[in-house]
């Protein structure tokens, strides 16, 4: 990751599959991507799983308000706002 890498937070509330596909795409330029699932538990389709595997490979941080979201670190909705202040861009989906 270069010195000019940006920190980008993607907030997922709906359209999970597209939000995750976009998150993965955002890693292409070497930026540090974190995903915050603030909505329903992630629906695991093949496409979603492939994108989550890719996000892991690209060392993205995955957070979710749902304990059941495997592979995501559990975070409370109250913890998210302060965390968002660390990011250059906040992209809500």
């Amino acid at each position: 990751m270069g010195d000019d890498a940006k920190k980008i937070a993607v907030i997922v509330t709906d359209r999970q599959s597209e939000a995750l596909r976009m998150s993965l795409g955002l890693t292409i330029e070497g930026d540090a991507i974190s995903v915050f699932n603030c909505g329903a538990p992630i629906e695991r389709t093949d496409e979603v799983n492939t994108n989550i595997d890719g996000l892991d490979m690209m060392e993205c941080q995955l957070f979710s308000v749902n304990e059941v979201d495997e592979g995501f670190a559990t975070i409370t909705m109250q913890e998210i706002p302060a965390k968002l202040l660390e990011y250059d861009h906040i992209v809500s989906y």
């Binding site: 795409g25 861009h89 992209v91």
Partner: peptide
Amino acid sequence: GSQYQNAVMMHEADRVVV
């Protein structure tokens, strides 16, 4: 294009709106 264009846009932008 593809998500590559999005990555470039986000990387280069000073501010992003959705």
